[in-house]
Design a binder for these strands. Structure first.
Lengths: 336, 336
DNA sequence: GATTACAATGTAATCGATTACATTATAGCA
DNA sequence: TGCTATAATGTAATCGATTACATTGTAATC
């Protein structure tokens, strides 16, 4: 009835210690007993109880990832599932599991981190959607918890992070437009308080600086990363512009839709390179983020953090993918 | 340094048993000791170790939800985040947590369920995307595991489930179109092997039956629930049709886009009633699913299942929301 | 005051693994 | 053969809670 390590031990005529050693591949077990024990384990289909192991080892093997519910972003972001897939793959290779949870509505975001820490439910956290001043990070630091942030602090704060080169990406995209003689580039940026938005804005500014150009702040708009937001910001912008740089492909797609309705024909560049970007018409010029690599690297860093006390800090390269949408005029490039 | 139940017990001058009783609200503790112990607990900021509790109680409080990675559906489905939010809210009210994980790529989907069961990581499962013949369900039944399915078996099999009235919804939508004298209704259905698709197809057939009409099977197409799929199926359909019924709002939006390009003007009805449905042009007539209620009810059922051995089986009502897209012709109703 | 009933608390086993330390078996060598 | 070094295994404590059972305290009753 009860199937635990001592059931196996009895059946194999050894002590629980020996069974445990076999399970954990200890070298100090003779080949003969190892085989004898393995046979019993297989016959009984015994699998060690994870909870008991966790209690003893003080490690649950769970990596907490709390999805901020304030933002639709994560779930509407086609990349997120790819990120999760790659992270999951890497983690499970080392016996870890992702514990995904949604922030509780109507509750201070920090509370769920506190709960998970206090009750020792997870070994570490992955922090998504880093804010400019992030109370989750503050909290985890005061508690000496292990975590890796997807994103990069804007104030040079020392936290373990993985990020793509958002600033560099924006720089490349905007430079490309400036080189094409665009001088009034509408920048549809993400939420103002997210670090990713700030890095991209820096890239936007830097590119202008390189060309010795002043930046008119009114060209930088803050919205959410959705198609709808891109559409609305473009449509409602009052003033002339001769190019659009959007902080996500979804936004860029919204901008294209708006431009079409406005019968305006200017270059558009997006960010991400989601699968759809190559399939829209016109196809979308965009800054490709290595999302698989982000997923893998975050998982890898978490493991490194847990098993060898490393302090990961990595910025992954991005690439400007030139397609039709940045080449005026769109009408030429494709039947609409 | 070490902060556990016996630290508290010592500090309060009682036994661990008494502290445990206080923690669990046992009535057999005098008011005086209760207060004394509470004071120490608060002062030390003691929180019971979840893993130790799990070991003793044989319950982890985690509800496993494994997201099938084969399908983009879940993550592109704007409803999913709402479902998760409501389920999370209900579960956490009773001290449970959702353990969301992605199916491992390149692995038999059953394996992750086996792992979670063998290692006793979760107390129960929520099964998404029920298939016509679902090996996950088969497996969990042989293992006597607790689970609730979102969806409804098509063969009358006795499993605990929560579903919306997919058949009724399709019936209402198709009846509405038939009443408008549509006789060649293109049905953009979901994947053929999913139970939800089968139920909706039954509704489509039943509505025709009510009107004494034969059904031409070539009008029922199987695709995925994405906008792209709806677009492509509509565009590539060879033959006449005078209405479109889509199995998701995203598909319906794709169909509208295709129809516009084809300069064809027929009624379109979707399924779900996602937030965008009211904001497209034309606004989308659709079958509203009570997604919040689904989330809440699934969570509720899981808890009932765990705590009182109930066997939940519920079908939630859906409602046909009439907007512009079903009223020919679209052109009249709104500026495109 | 003695007896009884029940309330309050404590003791120690238990959940299922891991592991420091103790013990026994085996091999190597004089 | 006897002794030592080391390999192999066992014993029992431990992780941090819960709880059956034992014990003690208190109040009510005769």
């Amino acid at each position: 009835m009860k199937l635990n390590i001592s059931t196996v031990a009895k059946k194999a005529g050894v002590s629980t210690a020996t069974v445990s050693r076999v399970l954990n591949g200890s070298p100090s077990v003779s080949k003969k007993t190892r085989e004898k024990v393995m046979k019993v384990i297989e016959k009984l289909e015994y699998v060690p109880n994870h909870v008991a192991r966790s209690l003893r080892s003080k490690k649950t093997g769970l990596i907490g990832t709390i999805i901020p519910h304030s933002t639709d972003y994560v779930f509407n972001f086609p990349y997120f599932s790819i990120f999760l897939r790659e992270a999951t793959k890497r983690l499970s290779g080392d016996g870890y599991q992702l514990l995904l949870t949604i922030e509780e509505p109507d509750e201070n975001p920090v509370e769920i981190y506190r709960t998970f820490l206090d009750r020792k439910i997870v070994d570490a956290f992955i922090i998504l959607d880093l804010k400019e001043k992030d109370e989750r990070v503050e909290f985890l630091k005061t508690r000496d918890a292990k975590f890796v942030v997807v994103g990069r602090a804007v104030n040079g704060e020392e936290i373990p992070f993985i990020d793509t080169d958002n600033m560099g990406g924006a720089f490349k995209a905007v430079s490309y437009l400036l080189k094409k003689k665009c001088r009034k580039i509408l920048f549809l940026n993400g939420p103002a308080n997210q670090s990713v938005s700030i890095w991209r804005a820096r890239g936007y500014l830097d590119a202008h600086l390189k060309y010795g150009l002043e930046v008119d702040d009114s060209f930088i708009l803050n919205g959410s990363f959705t198609e709808d937001s891109g559409y609305k910001m473009t449509k409602s912008f009052e003033g002339e512009f001769d190019a659009v740089f959007a902080a996500s492909d979804l936004m860029a797609m919204g901008a294209l839709k708006a431009l079409k309705e406005m019968e305006k024909d200017v270059p558009v560049i997006g960010f991400d390179d989601i699968p759809q970007a190559a399939m829209t018409s016109p196809t979308l010029t965009t800054v490709r983020q290595p999302i698989e690599k982000v997923g893998y690297t975050v998982a890898d860093s978490i493991i490194a953090c847990l098993e060898s006390e490393e302090f990961p800090r990595k910025v992954l390269d991005v690439e400007l993918i030139i397609r039709e949408s940045s080449e005026v005029n769109h009408e030429d490039s494709k039947k609409w």
